[in-house]
Design a protein around this nucleic acid. Structure first.
Length: 782
DNA sequence: CACTAAACTATTTTT
DNA sequence: TAGTTTAGTG
């Protein structure tokens, strides 16, 4: 019928072509072609059932997943020009919600010009709230740790759809009320700054649709990817989005795998699978389930180990019977090391063997870690042994100081209302401007806001420059004048008679030059890095490129999509419009808006032949021919938190189960070779070295892993009271000692003749991303 | 009142 | 290690 359906196996096809009406749960284990199925289903809904793309909502969890799906649809639908899949409402939950709020937020009193508060803004406002409250006499701790716990409190309530007024009153403890006070004050702060935080994106949409469900009344089908990662609010959104259109009531497709739920800490609830089933069954809606069991990724040894691991879950779980399609099947290897440095050495030696044997390339190898900080030791060792690697950290690029500063200066250029942006610029650039002076300026701004005006930071600063404000030191006034100049001159550059690209890049350079950003930040890092300027400039270049090459999103998506149009007063113009505007200024504004919600964080050079180091969470949805999972120690995986004995039994089990799922995700990333390891001792920071024991998850029956004892250090058992770091250093620097280290067997011995290098190169292409759409199809066919 | 230098302390995962 | 908090100085 459709060619893309021929490329699916029977189960996949059943899922993709399931009836339009009713609820479909697709239980897709790792490597079973989940994305392929959901993409095919979307195509089928549009082609076969003739659903208009603008009536279909496809919600994903990450930007990457959304982008990938669009890419696949591009290929899939190339031959069906009559279907315009660009009109699909596809994106992360957050981005879809923001689009809805921009358009209909007014109905719940939201100012349509709102901005998204990023993590830094949000933290700042929590701190602010704490400060305000302590000034009012409430006794509050404001250490970093405490701020974190306040944020957690707020977030967890928001994720349960509880605004301050909805929080159930605490029975006894009075610290609870303090938390609630902070929550209230924090919400006020958001409002005063005309921003909403990440959780609000979802929560406010939830509130909106509860009151005004007709806003999204024409939605005919809702699809959710990685459903196990949804929280209560997201589940509610699915119910509401699919619960209004009478001709297409409760038409939902969700795809996911409860075993891969590793975002519980962020209030994801894998139980949503069961909840949803109950909810719709009670409504009399047909609920069908399809399980995908054919695995196209891993060898059966890897799959067996994974299944064995999950068999130890405390919570209920359905057994999986994943079938491998791989002919070759090498054992999963396990080794232990005296300490984490030795472990790193073993890993690098092993990688060297695999790579030198021309069996794998560096880009085929990934090292997956429970936590980011574990990468340090391994990185050092990889540098030492000259192995190229890349650390893929979620948003580290955006967290660089130079990037954050540039973003803030550009925010100020883009909007006079953006106090949060302006304030960071002032703090950075104006000498002599401390908390007291900042407070004076902020008060002026908030006063304007209180009078229901948008607020205009630039005007206030001009007032200061003209000496109309008391309490600001002369030295600071001079600095403020400079900031004014930077902002104004940058704006002028955006109105120049040049191309958009030129305008943006000269504006960018203008800020960089006038703030002397590079030299100032370089100075701060001088004692830690060799050539900090280089790195800073490279980062700035990257940002500049992203800005200049940014394409304006189709924000008009919702514009014409709704018949209910006349029912709803259309959102008014944002009142933030600057006196003079230009295409490049619009572009700048959109760029700033988009960064946190739409823009995919670049995963370094995809083509570079490098080893990938990333966290287990960061590895989700990806795959590599060779995977190392080091540091499988109690206290790391499972993490210390899960081992906390002060938790009650149910919570402890739930936490342990999530940790186990973490390991499940890690091991199921591997296609051909999987190496597990742990160390007996962690050489650490100031807190001193810690003795470690083998992770409880490694207590497996015989036969699932092959221990390679050779990786253990030869020599006397470690004396734990002696400084081990020196020991490790000797190991590393002394060749004679190194020879006693046996390391791994040569790759040839392990692989035997079953694997020829030629045979392997065919299937050992790197990450999923590079496979794109065409490749896996061809691969699966054979 | 702001700035600097020394001291401290916490290390998960992220839209 | 690095980011933040503090105490002491100008």
């Amino acid at each position: 019928m459709y060619q893309f359906l021929d490329d699916l196996n029977a189960d996949q096809r059943a899922a993709a072509t399931a009836p339009l009406d009713g609820v479909l749960l697709v239980l897709a284990g790792p490597g079973t072609g989940k994305t392929k199925v959901i993409t095919a289903r979307v195509a089928y809904l549009m082609l076969h059932y003739k659903l208009p793309p603008e009536d279909i909502v496809v919600a994903t969890f990450t930007k990457k997943a959304a982008n990938e799906m669009v890419e696949r649809l591009d290929v899939l639908l190339a031959q069906f020009p009559e279907v315009d899949h660009k009109k699909l409402m596809i994106g992360t939950f957050h981005s879809i919600c923001v689009r809805i709020l921009r358009r209909y937020g007014r109905l719940i009193g939201l100012n349509s010009g709102f901005k998204i508060a990023d993590e830094a803004d949000s933290r700042h406002l929590v701190k602010k709230a704490v400060k305000t409250l302590s000034q009012e006499g409430v006794d509050l701790a404001s250490k970093e740790q405490d701020v974190k716990s306040y944020k957690n409190y707020i977030s967890s309530h928001k994720n349960k759809a509880q605004l301050p007024d909805d929080v159930p009153s605490a029975k006894s403890a009075n610290h609870r009320n303090k938390y609630l006070d902070i929550y209230r004050e924090y919400q006020e702060e958001l409002l005063r700054n005309n921003v909403i935080d990440f959780d609000d994106c979802l929560l406010l949409t939830h509130t909106l649709l509860k009151k005004h469900p007709y806003c999204m009344g024409r939605v005919k089908h809702v699809l959710v990817d990685e459903f196990q990662d949804t929280n209560a609010v997201q589940l509610g959104l699915v119910y509401m989005l699919s619960g209004y259109n009478e001709s297409h009531l409760h038409n939902v497709t969700v795809v996911g795998d409860p075993d891969q739920s590793i975002y519980g800490f962020r209030n994801a609830e894998a139980e949503n699978f069961f909840r949803m089933e109950d909810y719709y069954r009670q409504k009399g809606v047909t609920v069908s389930k399809v399980s995908l069991t054919q695995n196209y990724r891993s060898t059966s040894n890897i799959l067996n180990l994974a299944e064995q691991l999950m068999g130890q879950q405390f919570g209920k779980r359905e057994q999986k019977k994943l079938k491998s399609n791989k002919k070759v099947n090498l054992p999963v290897e396990l080794f232990s090391s005296a300490d984490n440095k030795v472990e790193a050495i073993s890993i690098s030696k092993k990688i060297k063997e695999l790579v030198d044997g021309a069996v794998f390339r560096c880009s085929d190898v990934a090292i997956l870690l429970r936590a980011g900080f574990l990468s340090r030791v391994i990185e050092q060792e990889l540098i030492h042994s000259n192995l190229p690697y890349q650390v893929v950290h979620g948003r580290s690029f955006w967290e660089n100081k130079e990037i954050r500063l540039m973003m803030n200066f550009m925010r100020a250029v883009a909007s006079d209302m953006d106090w949060l942006g302006y304030s960071r610029c002032l703090e950075f650039h104006v000498a002599g401007l401390g908390p007291k002076s900042m407070q004076i300026i902020e008060d002026l701004f908030m006063e304007q806001r209180a009078h229901n005006e948008p607020g205009n930071v630039l005007a206030i600063l001009e007032g200061i420059a003209e000496g109309r404000v008391k309490g600001i030191m002369a030295k600071s006034v001079a600095g403020i004048k400079e900031v004014l100049d930077i902002i104004k001159s940058s704006r002028k550059l955006l109105l120049d008679d040049k191309t958009e690209q030129e305008q943006l890049s000269t504006m960018f350079n203008n800020i960089v030059t006038k703030t002397k950003l590079v030299s100032i930040i370089a100075k701060e890092r001088a004692d830690k890095h060799d050539s900090p300027e280089e790195e800073i400039e490279a980062n700035l270049n990257e940002l500049q490129n992203q800005l200049v090459s940014f394409n304006i999103q189709e924000e008009t998506l919702l514009q014409d999509a709704y018949e209910t149009e006349d029912l709803i007063e259309v959102a008014d113009e944002s009142f933030d419009a600057l006196a003079e505007t230009s295409a490049s200024l619009d572009k700048l504004t959109q760029f700033l808006d988009s960064v946190y919600l739409y823009e995919e964080t670049k995963d370094a050079k995809k083509t570079a032949p490098k080893i990938t180091i990333t966290t287990v969470h960061g590895s989700k949805g990806l795959e590599w021919p060779v995977v190392f999972v080091p540091a499988l120690c109690d206290g790391i995986l499972p993490s210390q938190y899960a081992l906390n004995t002060s938790l009650d039994e149910a919570k402890r089990q739930a936490a342990l189960d999530e940790e186990r799922r973490c390991m499940y995700v890690a091991v199921t990333r591997a296609k051909e070779r999987l190496f597990l390891s742990y160390h007996h001792r962690a050489l650490g920071f100031s807190m001193g070295d810690q003795a470690k024991t083998k992770s409880r998850f490694l207590n497996l029956p015989k036969g699932f892993v092959q221990s390679s004892k050779a990786a253990m250090l030869k020599g006397p058992p470690l004396n734990l009271s002696q400084p081990t770091s020196r020991f490790a250093n000797v190991m590393r620097s002394s060749p004679s000692l190194n020879t006693t280290y046996k390391g791994f067997q040569p790759a040839s011995k392990l692989t035997g003749n079953a694997f020829t290098p030629e045979g392997l190169t065919k299937i050992s292409k790197p990450t999923k991303k590079r496979l794109g759409m065409g490749r896996p199809l061809r691969f699966l066919k054979k």
